[in-house]
Write a protein that binds this DNA or RNA. Structure first.
Lengths: 161, 161
DNA sequence: GCAAATTAATGATTTATTCAAG
DNA sequence: CTTGAATAAATCATTAATTTGC
């Protein structure tokens, strides 16, 4: 029952995030605009916008971009292989795995994503306080590792979940 | 000048963490006790203990365990290869690269590390508020993604830097 | 003895692979 | 079978050892 547990309802466990149509649409749109590894600020912004369409957290946006980038890449690679063994396709190609990707737009501008980032959060083992803090908890700290001089290293961090 | 900028002195920028003898010692000890991918709580605890010996953050502990685990693994692999082409060692083996690892204790109990984790934090692009929050900022949130029922998924998170 | 130049270790980042929910 | 999530492997970058010429 209750198959429509899309977002933050009470009954729907849904251990993993499931993007709504709108969310996915916006994400893909951003991806095609060239965003590959969004910065923290970008992710925060995106997340906020997507929260209008349902429950979502920063890490979902993060993972989505990671996976999408990787899988677009391997899709293209597979297409190249298919291109190699082109011609002479045998009989029933209708039952081929649904890998009918139409990569007309090679959104592969390999450069231009000089976005450096890093990640770092932890699950604890299963049994922890079962309270119910539902929403997203943002935790932004100004800077943390190197309050030293300024050896040009990039150190500012910003956490969010 | 000032060659002794080991830890949190003012002059030593040192863009990356450098473990002190004591820190390294404790870390290795814990590793040999079987800890391979410590949980958030463990990392917090370890970090606090190590902070007695100098500046260190949770992410350093995290990275240390990742790297150490991986590199122990590949050391053992290399040793296995050496074992394969054993016998008949040619002449001057004294000048061999200093890879004289004495892996008497194979700390490789491959199972028993059902520790799951994840990471997730971001740098922002270089120019950010140049204040000077020096110390470690802990940010522990009870749980965040799934306040839903309890589909056995492990969801509790806990951030720290 | 000491620095500049090289090499080896290792901290930090990025990419690829695997697991599992839907 | 798709894809979000989690883990491992590969890579990059910086620091410490070590070597070398003076």
């Amino acid at each position: 029952m209750d198959p429509s547990n899309a977002g933050s309802s009470s009954t729907g466990p849904s251990s993993r995030w499931n993007p709504t149509k709108e969310q996915l649409s916006l994400l893909e749109s951003l991806y095609e605009q060239g965003i590959r590894t969004p910065s923290a600020e970008q992710i925060q912004s995106i997340t906020k916008r997507l929260q209008a369409y349902g429950h979502i957290e920063g890490k979902n946006v993060f993972y989505w971009f990671q996976n999408h980038k990787a899988r677009q890449r391997q899709k293209q690679k597979m297409d190249q292989q298919q291109m190699m063994m082109c011609g002479a396709v045998s009989s029933n190609n209708a039952l081929n795995n649904v890998v009918a990707v139409n990569n007309l737009n090679n959104v592969d501008n390999a450069a231009a994503d000089g976005a450096y980032f890093n990640r770092f959060y932890y699950h604890s083992p299963p049994p922890i306080s079962p309270s119910g803090v539902a929403a997203v908890a943002g935790c932004a700290l100004p800077l943390l590792p190197g309050p030293h001089s300024g050896k040009s290293s990039h150190n500012q961090i910003l956490i969010f979940i």
